[in-house]
Amino acid sequence: MGGLTVTSSIKSFGGTLHKLSHDSTSTGTKMALNLFIPPAPPREPIKMPLLVYLSGLTCTGDNCAEKGFIQPHAVKYGIAVAYPDTSPRGAGVEGEDKDWDFGTGAGFYIDATNPPYDKNYKMYTYITKELPALLKEHYQEIDTERVSLMGHSMGGHGAMSIYLKNPGKYLSCSAFAPIANPVACPWGQKAFTGYFGPPPPTSSVESPTPSIWQQHDSTHLIKSYPQDTPMAIKIDVGTADKFYQDGQLLVENFEKAAREAKWGEAYVEVKKRDGYDHSYYFVSSFVKDHVDFHATFLLGVGQRRPDGLVVGEGAYQV
């Protein structure tokens, strides 16, 4: 398969989960990912949209594929799901394996500019350019022009910041317990200092020209998101989430910024789930709601497609 190697293929909910690896031009390392392809439709196949799931700190592309249970809901709508890794691995950068919340497993979905991380830690380019190009080349059944983003924790930050940095490129975005204001929380400050260098001066926080820190912070990005571009963001966070309680997520800061930017609940939906924590027990409990949400934008649920199919309870219901 050229640049992609299939290491294994596993039957899952009627579809197939492919475990893939390739030599990345973005990171300069070998990257692994999971790709779920739902079963073929009963009629002439149409290209299926893509949902990209971004995982959190310490995770790989395996975590959600095994514990998130997106697949049965993706099968309902005929949506392919990609589960990329969270960082380069084996880059050989000094110190990258020292801490669990920085370096290996903690790429934060940005392109580092600070040496020595600037050579390999290019996860923003990997997610936005290299990954879709690879899938377009090797999986013709996937429509890489119809893509939505979902993520958890650090991956929630990645999904939201990438969505907001690229107005109109992605059809929808959802996040579980996202790091919604990384410039203001310990996790984000540690990562951004390492990947970008020291924080911007306090006096420049409201500068017309955002600092590189602010360019990857959803709470700042939503302030300048163009009002004439569609917006669709869904967020869930558990009230018993220790990281939410300790100020790592700062979802309220994002909510406030969204309201001030005139993006109401019709565009940005935030739900606080009573008693739920930060784990995949939480993610899997509400993942159906998120897939249903994305299907509305990826497939136009309830609308008749050009090939005569009506998207309803199943992706190919007529």
Rank of each mutant, 00 (worst) to 15 (best):
A266T: 05
R146D: 05
S26N: 01
S9Q: 13
P230I: 02
E96Q: 11
G103T: 00
A65S: 14
P39M: 11
S224E: 03
Q215N: 05
H220C: 07
G275D: 04
Q227Y: 14
H290M: 11
W213F: 12
K262V: 09
F293V: 00
S8C: 09
D118N: 14
Y83V: 02
M48Q: 10
G105M: 09
F286H: 02
P132W: 04
Q189D: 08
I127D: 07
S24I: 03
E44F: 04
I110S: 05
Y109K: 00
L149H: 05
R273A: 15
P115M: 07
T104E: 13
I179M: 14
Y280V: 01
G314H: 10
H18S: 11
H152A: 13
E265I: 08
P230K: 00
Y280E: 01
S55Y: 08
H216F: 15
Q140G: 11
L250R: 06
K76F: 05
T5S: 12
S9L: 03
K165L: 14
G314E: 08
T25K: 06
G275P: 00
L221Y: 07
K190S: 12
V268C: 13
D228N: 14
I79Y: 08
N166I: 04
G194D: 07
L164V: 06
I46D: 01
E137C: 04
D99I: 01
K30S: 12
L309W: 14
M48I: 10
S207P: 02
V311F: 06
A40S: 11
E313P: 00
I235T: 05
G302C: 07
Q214W: 09
P208R: 00
Q245R: 01
T60C: 11
P88D: 10
T202G: 07
H220D: 06
R89Q: 12
V311C: 08
M231T: 03
P88Q: 05
R43S: 15
A91F: 09
H138R: 02
T58M: 12
N63E: 15
